[in-house]
Amino acid sequence: MKYPILVLGGYGNFGGKISEKLAKHSGIRVIVAGRDKQKAEDFARIMSHETGSTIDAVKLDISESNLCKNIADTGEKLVIHSCGPFQGQSYSVAEACIESGINYIDLADGRSFVNGFEKLNIKAKQNNVLAVTGASSVPGLSSSVVDEFLSAFRELKEIEYGIAPGNQADRGEATVKAILSYTGRPFKRWQGGSWDDVYGWQEVHKQTFPCPIGKRWLANCDIPDLELFHSRYPGLRTIKFYAGLEIGALHIGLWLLSWSARFRLVSNLSRYSRIITKMSCWVQTLGTDIGGMYIQMSGTDVNGNPKVLRWDLVAEDGDGPKIPTIPSIILAKKLAEGTLEEKGAKACVGLFSLAEFTDEVEDLNIWQKLTSVP
Rank of each mutant, 00 (worst) to 15 (best):
I5K: 07
Y11L: 01
F14D: 02
F14W: 04
G15V: 00
G16Y: 04
K21A: 12
H25P: 00
S26G: 14
S26T: 14
R29A: 10
I31C: 09
D36E: 14
K37A: 15
K37M: 14
Q38H: 12
K39Y: 10
S48P: 06
G52T: 13
G52R: 12
A57S: 14
V58L: 15
K59W: 03
L60G: 00
L60V: 06
I62H: 05
C68T: 15
C68G: 09
C68I: 11
G75V: 12
G75R: 13
H81V: 05
C83R: 00
G84Y: 01
Q87D: 14
G88K: 11
V93T: 14
C97K: 10
N103E: 05
Y104G: 00
S112L: 14
S112V: 14
N115M: 04
N121W: 01
K125F: 07
S136C: 12
V138H: 00
G140L: 05
V146S: 03
E148Y: 09
L150F: 15
S151M: 08
F153R: 07
Y161N: 08
G162M: 07
G162H: 03
G166D: 02
K177I: 01
Y182V: 04
F187P: 01
G193F: 09
D196L: 11
G200S: 10
G200K: 03
W201P: 01
T208V: 13
P212M: 13
R216Y: 08
L218W: 01
L218D: 02
P224S: 11
R232W: 07
R232H: 12
R237I: 12
A243Q: 11
L250Y: 10
G253C: 10
L254V: 13
W255F: 13
A261I: 02
R264D: 13
L265C: 07
L269F: 08
S270Y: 06
G291D: 03
G292P: 04
Y294C: 06
I295P: 01
M297K: 01
T300H: 12
T300E: 14
V302W: 09
V302I: 15
V308C: 11
R310F: 04
D312Q: 10
D312F: 12
V314P: 00
G318H: 04
I323Y: 03
P324G: 10
P327F: 06
L331K: 03
A332M: 08
E337P: 04
C348R: 02
L354N: 11
F357V: 06
E360S: 13
E360V: 06
E360N: 08
D363N: 15
N365F: 08
I366G: 04
Q368T: 15
L370A: 07
L370P: 02
P374H: 13
